[in-house]
Structure formats: C-alpha cells, structure tokens
Design a protein around this nucleic acid. Structure first.
Lengths: 188, 188
DNA sequence: TGTACATCAGTGAACGCGCGTTCACTGATGTAC
DNA sequence: TGTACATCAGTGAACGCGCGTTCACTGATGTAC
C-alpha cells in the first residue's frame, strides 16, 4: 500500500509481515480464526496471493506467530501487577484489548506446537503469572491459588468476549465486576 | 449403514439426523468446529453428499442443533445439584463428557442466533444455574455469586479442555481440583 | 385386504468458486571489491 | 564513486481439489377410501 511518492506501487511492500498480521487480527476479531485464508489476507494487504507464504509458510505458521505475539503482549501486561487481583484485572483487560490474539492463544490445535518462539513467549507469560501468585501471602497452596485465579480470569474474559455476560452483569464496567469477583476469591 | 438383513443398503437411512450429529461431534472433538464440512459428514454417515442438507439446511443449522442439544444436556446435568459448588463440579464434568458440544455452545458466531430451540434450551440451562445460585445462603449479591461460579467453572473447564492445565495440576483428578477451587470461592 | 396417491428421504450429475501450492520470473536491495 | 553479483521479496499463471448448492430423479413410507 505504501508508495514512495505518487501513485506508483512499490514493488516491495515495506512491512508485509506486519500488514498480514494486522489483516489477520481484523478477520479473527470479526469472524473468528476459521475465516482466515492466506489469499484473502494477501488481497487485504494489496499484494499478490502467493506473497504471504513468503513470511508465514501457511495458516498454522501465521496463527503460531499470532499466538506468540499474544503471549508476549500478555507477559508485558502482567509485568507490573501489584497483586493477584490486579493481575486478574490486567488479564481481563488484555483479553478485551486483544480479542483476536486471545482467541488464538489458547487453542493449541491451531498452532505448530513445537515452535520455539511460541514456547518461549508462553513461558514468559507463565512466569509473570507465577510471580503474581507468589505475592499472595499465607496461601496454603500457591499452585492451587494460581489455577483458581487463572480459571476465574480466563472464564470471565471468555464469557465476556463471547457475549455471554450481557444479561447478569448488564452495563457495569467489566473490570469493576471482575474486581468484585476476585475479592470473593481472595478475601483478606 | 443399517441394513434390514443382508448386505443390501437400505434406501432410507433410518436415523440420518442422529448419524450426522454423531459424526459432527466426532469431527469437532478431534479437529474443532472449523473442520466441519457437510460433504465429509455425509461420507462418514455413508450417505450421498446432498442428504445432510435435508435435515440441517447448512453448517450453521447443524451447529445450532448441536448447541441446543448441548444446553439441554447441560440443563439435565445441573438439575439435581446439591449446592453451588456441586453445580460447578457438574459443569466441569459436563464439559469433559461432551467436549464437542461445549466447544460449540459458547461461540454465538457459529449459530443462528434467533433459533427458537436454541433460545429455549439456553434458557433452561440458565434457569438451572440460577437455581443453584439461590441455594447459597447469605450471599450479598446472588447475581455476582452466579457470575463468579460460572466464570470459575467455565474458565477451569476451558483451560482443561485446551490442555492448558497439564503443568500446574498434573495428574490430580480435575473434579477434585475444581472442588478445592470452589472451596476458596465459597468458604463456609 | 387392496389400490391409488401424496409425501418424504435420499440420489447422483452438474455447476461455479475460492482455496493452497508450485514454479519460473522479475524488480529491488545489499555487499564485495 | 562505480560496477558486478548474490540475495531477497513479490509476481502472475497454472494446477488440482473439496466445497456448497441446485435440480430432476427415484425409492420408500404413510394415508384415504
């Protein structure tokens, strides 16, 4: 799409990798991962249909790249969490801010399972979560507390994104609602 | 597949609707809803490729029928729950027993949203969940307690089915683990 | 008990479409000397 | 500063495939009389 000056089409795109990723995130956010096709993404990026394969070999390669990026974004989002409740709030916020990443990250069937970038990113995000759990003092079983927090945040985020909480929660700010739930789980 | 006596192929299948649903649940459980094609299901049911359309107009019709059946199964599973924790345990058990239904039920993008059977089944399941919440005595906000329980159970079930809990929980029985989590949420 | 007819369930050929993949190519960029 | 060459990014034509959809059809079942 980018041209040097006039209407001339540059032969090289400039950043086709990023353009394809962005187009893919758009498609996923509106129609889900199943709606992805490399040809369609090429069309959206204004590039010939075989070009995307140059950067991501195929659909699985593209989805793996998205998942890895998602775990890195999640790790960054969790980095400065004050406590476990705050980490949960940040988890929910991440899901709302990056619904397409979120939809891809937890479906291993969509990825190349052994991709080193993906594994590394997932580990980084897991480390941040574990750090947040360790902040909770006097927990009998920290691992169990971690699973509880993760389940609560993940379930809430999932139900929210799939529009299954419109009834019971109504118009309250989702992050506030989640804070209340976390309060029930981690009573001080 | 069913024949009256010998190897003769019956012209009428007998219960093609059920056969297609079963084949679809197999495919979804192993490869996800995206892998569904009516032609493939016809093949699995041993029937000509245009036959399934007779029962479910198209993919969305089929997925809507699966979602409706799922909500009915869920309603039945929740019917005799002793308390909210027990309802959560049953929710998790339902997800493990019927992973394909579970994968379809909460993705509205896959359904015909206004299908009356689906709406009715969803309402029945929702009613059962609300009943379980009302059993919890002395809850300040029953709706919030309901969302908390639902989020916890839904998140735990989702992470479990997507193989994201293999690390932290290890080989413990998932229902036991969930019971511990619910204990944290609803301390007596 | 028998016949005629309507309805229903499934068939099979045909169609057009979008997809992924391959491949020889060409234009642009970077590097060595 | 200039030239030669290697590498890289994207092109565009071609292919074969599985898909959904349509349609005239046929075999089986149910119902009225």
């Amino acid at each position: 799409m980018t041209t040097s000056s006039g209407g001339r089409r540059a032969y090289h795109h400039g950043d086709l990798r990023r353009a394809v990723l962005t187009a893919a995130l758009d498609v996923i956010a509106s129609d889900g991962p199943a709606a992805l096709s490399l040809r369609d993404l090429a069309r959206r990026a204004g590039v010939s249909h075989a070009a995307p394969a140059h950067h991501f070999k195929d659909r699985a390669g593209l989805l793996t790249a998205i998942a890895a990026e998602g775990f890195d974004l999640l790790a960054a989002a969790l980095a400065d969490a004050a406590d476990l409740t705050d980490a949960g709030v940040r988890y929910v916020r991440f899901a709302r801010d990056h619904p397409a990443h979120f939809a891809v990250m937890f479906q291993p069937g969509l990825h190349r399972p052994e991709d080193p970038d993906l594994l590394a990113a997932r580990t980084r995000a897991g480390d941040r979560l574990r750090e947040a759990v360790s902040e909770v003092a006097g927990q009998d079983d920290p691992r169990l507390a971690g699973v509880a927090a993760w389940s609560l945040a993940h379930g809430f985020a999932t139900l929210l994104l799939t529009h299954n909480l419109t009834g019971p929660v109504g118009d309250r700010d989702p992050e506030d609602v989640f804070r209340s739930l976390a309060g029930m789980l981690f009573r001080r």
